[in-house]
Amino acid sequence: MKPFDQLVAYIKELHTIEEEEIDLILSKFSHQKLKRNQILVREGEPCNFNYFVLNGSLRLYKIKEDGQELIRYFALENKFASNLTSLITNEISQEYIQSNETSEILAIHKIDFYNLVEVSPAMNKVYRNILENAYITSQKRIYNFQGMEAIERLKWAVKYNPNLLSRIPNKMIASYLGITPFTLSRIKSKI
């Protein structure tokens, strides 16, 4: 499968699209290969790109003053990742975007992305899907994690990211779930 085929398949799941519109969309994306732990965006820099993961994974995180990572999101295959607040407002990013493993992505600059959202019904649907999923995931994490036991948090995370446990280090998953690595090790066998 060619790199752009995955993006086309993703778009076609959301909206019918003509070949001419596909060509326009694909012309705005660049293909990039990332090394493990490669940083795409640093805290304090603007986030000027939206990234589509072809293979590998990205994580979005913040580092607390004590050095602890607070992971907000993992993007595995066929997911978009960006610091949407920075992308939308043009403010600096409050988090890092980094590859967890050797990865391939498609990147689109925000100017091109928003121009496509205006002229392409398919990309407008993609953007709406990105925003809706970000909102839903955020709401579920906030409200569910407040009252959920650690094992329920883990089950929720695996439901929405089935490959999480086999691909992401325990320390990162624990950070994402707001539990200790020891707790994660203890409960993994229960699911």
Rank of each mutant, 00 (worst) to 15 (best):
F113A: 00
N50M: 15
N100D: 14
N124W: 06
Y143M: 08
F49Q: 10
I111P: 00
S185C: 09
E104V: 05
E118V: 08
P169N: 10
F113N: 00
T102V: 12
A174W: 00
Y135H: 11
K33S: 13
I173N: 01
L165H: 02
C47A: 14
L60P: 00
P162N: 08
I173W: 00
S86K: 03
E20S: 12
K64A: 14
Y73H: 11
I136N: 07
S185W: 04
F113R: 02
I11Q: 03
S138A: 09
A81Y: 03
F182A: 14
K35D: 15
K155D: 09
S27G: 15
R59W: 12
P46N: 14
E19H: 14
Q32A: 09
R141Y: 07
K171T: 09
R186G: 03
L154A: 06
I22M: 09
L177K: 00
E65C: 06
R72H: 09
A174Y: 03
V53E: 01
E95R: 04
F74N: 00
Q6I: 07
I111C: 04
E18Y: 12
R59M: 10
I173S: 01
R167C: 02
Q146V: 07
S103P: 05
A75Y: 04
F182K: 11
E65M: 07
I187K: 02
L76E: 13
S82G: 03
L87S: 00
S103A: 14
K110C: 00
T85A: 08
I71S: 01
E21A: 11
A122C: 05
K2I: 10
I108P: 00
K159N: 08
F182T: 15
E149V: 14
Y51C: 06
Q32S: 08
Y127N: 15
T16R: 10
P121G: 12
S93R: 05
I25D: 01
N78C: 07
Q94P: 02
L87K: 03
N144S: 09
N83T: 05
S86G: 03
R153E: 05
K188N: 12
L58D: 03
E149I: 12
I136F: 11
F80L: 05
T180F: 03
K159I: 04
I179Y: 02
A157N: 02
R186P: 01
N55T: 11
H109Q: 11
I168F: 08
T102C: 06
D23E: 14
I136Y: 10
S57N: 10
N55Q: 15
W156T: 07
S86Q: 02
S138T: 11
E132Q: 09
S57D: 08
T89A: 08
K125V: 09
T137V: 04
Y160T: 13
T180L: 06
I97E: 06
E65P: 02
Y160V: 13
M148H: 11
E118D: 14
N129D: 15
I151V: 13
Q68V: 11
L164I: 12
D5Y: 05
Q146P: 01
K28Y: 01
K188C: 04
P121Y: 07
A81C: 11
M148N: 12
N37G: 07
K33D: 10
K171V: 12
I63K: 15
R72N: 08
M123P: 00
A150Q: 02
N83P: 01
F145I: 05
R72T: 05
E21M: 06
L26S: 03
P169D: 10
N83Q: 03
D112H: 04
V8I: 14
P46D: 13
F182L: 12
I17H: 04
I179T: 04
L26Q: 07
K12L: 12
